[in-house]
Design a protein around this nucleic acid. Structure first.
Lengths: 198, 198
DNA sequence: CTGACTTTTTCCCGTCACGGTAAATAACGG
DNA sequence: CCGTTATTTACCGTGACGGGAAAAAGTCAG
């Protein structure tokens, strides 16, 4: 929704090109807002048309020339204005929850492997945020201008930790489910083999 | 993204009309997936065109007739198929994070009030989920078919708790910020008045 | 040297999401 | 009589998002 505003927010840090924005969204906002390069470029032209940013062409040798975008006073004002409006709480909207909701109409095995992949994913993110936190804010405190970035990292950490723990719980629950089903419906594999042997 | 699949998932529970779906999304999926009635109806016609659901008109007296939609075997198959594909981890995409990211280019006061509203919002959600949990799963356990729903509530709880706590932290951090600024830049109001009096 | 990859921007195509405005229908509550 | 509830449908836009592609000029590996 607020992709344009996210870009404006990025540009408060320093002027950037579309390419740079697309690459990382500056290693911090990018974790919360993924957007591919075409989206970024499209948004940049919109913002330029609105006069919120201003592009300055930098001639390069060896590479195509680049357009470095800077916030205009109008852009700053727009950002401030937008930031003063109440935010809309975001929904979770995770596919996994829908799958789990329909658990009994769905194959459990792919779900379990999916959950395990997700667990790893969230652990990775957690570790990444942790590293970033230790690097950028080793004291756990931030200078006034960066307090918001610290807070962003903090909720990222909390979120990834919570989701990872939840994944573990979900995997366990699924295991309990299938082992229960096997006990009542199918003979579990090991016992089956043991019985076949004995 | 998977609005159609979310609807299919809902319909695994029981046949429903668009109106019912729009109302609540069944008091559980609706917390994660908000969608207004026009979206739902649009999606329903698409699903019907694909043959994933089937509408049966129920004649009513006193109210307009309603269309009760039921999953078709094709719809069930589509849901299973969709659920077997790996899920894409959702981004956070919360406006608040963008505002905080650009904290030093933004007015703090509206942000603070926004954060307080959000705190209340997440506490409310938390309480709501807790009530629902105690009502639907008083033992903290679920029959096999409902395990996924329990897990959904669980992550909802964890999420709201984490975000609410984070809001508190953020509010504190902002307070520290402004009181710090007042100490260095502006004389705080009370002291100002005391000095004026003395 | 060739072929692959990086850097940088742009364009065109679509689908999905989302939301406002609104209308039709028919009962019930006040 | 007016407003609300229940129920569906329509039309309109904007915004998000992503595939596919192409330019242009360099670097680096094989």
């Amino acid at each position: 929704m607020a992709l344009g505003d996210a870009i404006l927010a990025c540009l408060t840090e320093r002027p950037m090109t579309g390419y740079e924005l697309a690459k990382t969204f500056d290693n911090s906002i990018g974790f919360f807002w993924k957007a591919d390069h075409q989206q970024i470029y499209r948004e940049l032209t919109k913002l330029r048309d609105r006069g919120h940013i201003q592009g300055r062409e930098v001639v390069q040798s060896g590479k195509p020339n680049k357009l470095v975008y800077t916030l205009t006073p109008d852009g700053r004002a727009a950002l401030r204005h937008w930031a003063a409006r109440p935010s809309v709480p975001a929904s979770i909207k995770d596919d996994l929850l829908v799958r789990l909701y329909a658990l009994d109409s769905v194959d459990v095995e792919p779900l379990r492997t999916d959950l395990m992949a997700r667990l790893e994913h969230h652990r990775d993110r957690f570790a990444r945020y942790e590293r970033l936190l230790n690097k950028r804010f080793p004291q756990g405190t931030a200078p006034p201008a960066d307090v918001g970035k610290l807070l962003g990292l903090r909720i990222g950490l909390a979120h990834e930790r919570a989701v990872a723990e939840w994944c573990e719980e979900a995997i366990e629950a699924l295991s309990a489910l299938t082992s229960g089903a096997e006990r009542s419906n199918v003979v579990p594999l090991e016992e089956n083999q043991r019985e076949n042997k004995g």
